[in-house]
Design a protein around this nucleic acid. Structure first.
Length: 419
RNA sequence: GGAGGAGUGUCGGAGUGGUCUAACGAAACAGUCUUGAAAACUGUCACCCGGGCAACUGGGUCGUGAGUUCGAAUCUCACCUCCUCCGCCA
């Protein structure tokens, strides 16, 4: 959410920002609605002031005077009630629209129509070359009994999967390694995946993508990322400035309906309804430079994690159309998938300025004693099992076995997975 | 699942229809005193929206939302959260 004062004073900026994100919204409509809101509010408050004044008089009046005063109040109230009714309607519309005003993308965000227009800003490692015909991760993992997709579909349905044997052990090794790697600077959290809808509004996922979430019969949602509960963790709180920045590492199951992706990635572990993810989240002081600094930092953390595994990757700067409602700027890290011959996203680093914290009401007191909305950022640390796709495909051997990177071998207890 | 109780500022806590501009206490901060500290004393001690260059000023906020009333922290309803007991389960 943006500040209405900011919107009014920077209409061009807001309009251009929305355009860059390819989001349609009626800015003029919002401004004229806000004009009405201001006008009506002023009028109602004036009447209420009069009411308060008379109210005090009533307490000191004689019984006869009291009757007269109460009569006059009745008239005042009739006019006020009508206005309050209208104000209430306007406020409802106003709030609904305010929740849909997109945050303004950074200058450095490239224009573009879709993720195809994201700009590669870095690539690391040599694309893996094989002196044999490589297999895809489905064939490899099924062959090594690390996963079972047929029975996964039987039990769960479309996009269902079981992990088993070394597939499970490998996941645990990755988790343990990730906990040690990121846990140095970040406080680990296991978060609730069942969240109230308010947490989705606060993070900016709602309104807008209601179809992406599984809902329970109690109207709670299954979060698609630990970002949601971790942001809600400090909602309605005033933090101590000395405690900033907060660096949190969320670990949680993640649930996604993938309704907009019915035909996409139907095989394997790329796109599943249920997975696990470590997520970095930062709350810091409200300062653009600080946000930028942490944005680079958390993205670099994930790059370094991938580098330590030795998987070739590239980093892209997302274009305007590929930014969410609240995001100012976003980097995606994509890992090389040999059998597909392309890079696939495994991480997303974004910053929001105070877009989320304003909705969540997360503030801190600055040195002048002024309350300010903190800034928020988040970045994937590591998603499982998606990471396994690149891991097993890049490190497969001619005999169908998988060589395990040294840093993981320590946690797995062996340096290869074979039949 | 059933029965009952509670929610007031940073914390404790008073207030059950109009002098609430929310008492009082604690903590915190500043000052006086002191070699320094403690104690004592004095003062400060919410947030949101609007108007004003400013001093200041209008409105709102007592878990949340609706309602009753000329007037609500106080009465009614719904919801949220917590506590106690019973039941069920581990």
């Amino acid at each position: 959410m943006l500040d209405i004062k900011f919107i009014r004073e920077n209409r061009d900026l807001v309009a251009k920002g929305a355009q860059k994100k390819h989001i349609n919204f009626d800015l003029d409509g919002l401004i004229s609605l806000d004009d009405q809101r201001r006008e009506l509010t002023a009028s109602v408050e004036k009447k209420r002031a009069e009411q308060n004044l008379v109210s005090v008089k009533v307490t000191r009046a004689t019984p006869a005077e009291k009757q007269l005063l109460i009569e006059s109040m009745r008239h005042l109230k009739e006019g006020m009630q009508e206005e309050e009714e209208r104000l209430k309607e306007i406020m409802q519309k106003w709030q609904a629209i305010m929740l849909q005003v997109p945050n303004i993308p950074d200058m450095s965000v490239p224009d573009g129509e879709s993720d195809a227009d994201n700009k590669e800003i870095k690539s690391w490692g040599e694309k893996t070359a094989f002196d044999f015909e490589p297999k895809d991760h489905v064939e490899l993992m099924v062959g090594l009994q690390m996963a079972d997709f047929e029975r996964g579909v039987k039990v769960h349905g479309f996009r269902g999967y079981f992990l088993s044997g070394d597939g499970v052990r490998l996941c645990f090794a990755i988790w343990n390694y990730a906990l040690a790697f990121f846990g140095k600077d970040f406080i680990p959290f296991m978060t609730p995946s069942l969240v109230r809808k308010i947490a989705l509004y606060g993070t900016g996922y709602l309104p807008g993508s209601a179809d992406d979430f599984y809902m329970t019969q109690d109207e709670d949602a299954l979060a698609g990322t630990a970002e949601v509960p971790l942001m809600a963790l400090h909602s309605d709180e005033t933090l101590e400035m000395k405690d900033l920045p907060k660096r949190y590492l969320g670990f949680s199951p993640c649930y996604r309906r993938e309704v907009g992706a019915h035909g996409k990635d139907v095989k394997g572990l790329i796109r599943v309804h249920e997975f696990y993810k470590f997520e970095q989240l930062v709350l810091c002081e409200a300062n653009h430079e600080t946000s930028v600094k942490f944005h680079e930092e958390i993205n670099r953390n994930t790059e370094q994690f991938i580098e330590s595994l030795g998987i070739p990757y590239r980093t892209v700067l997302n274009c305007g159309a590929d930014l969410g409602l609240g995001q100012v700027k976003k980097y995606d890290i994509e890992l090389w998938v040999p059998k597909e011959g392309k890079y696939r996203e495994i991480s997303s680093a974004s910053y929001f300025h105070d877009f989320q914290t304003r909705r969540m009401n997360i503030r801190y007191k600055d040195p002048e004693g002024k309350l300010r909305y903190a800034h928020s950022l988040n970045c994937t640390a590591i998603p499982t099992p998606r990471i396994l796709v690149s891991l097993v495909e890049n490190f497969q051997q001619k005999d169908g076995s998988i060589k395990i990177p040294e840093v993981l071998a320590k946690y797995l207890g062996k340096d290869n997975i074979s039949a």
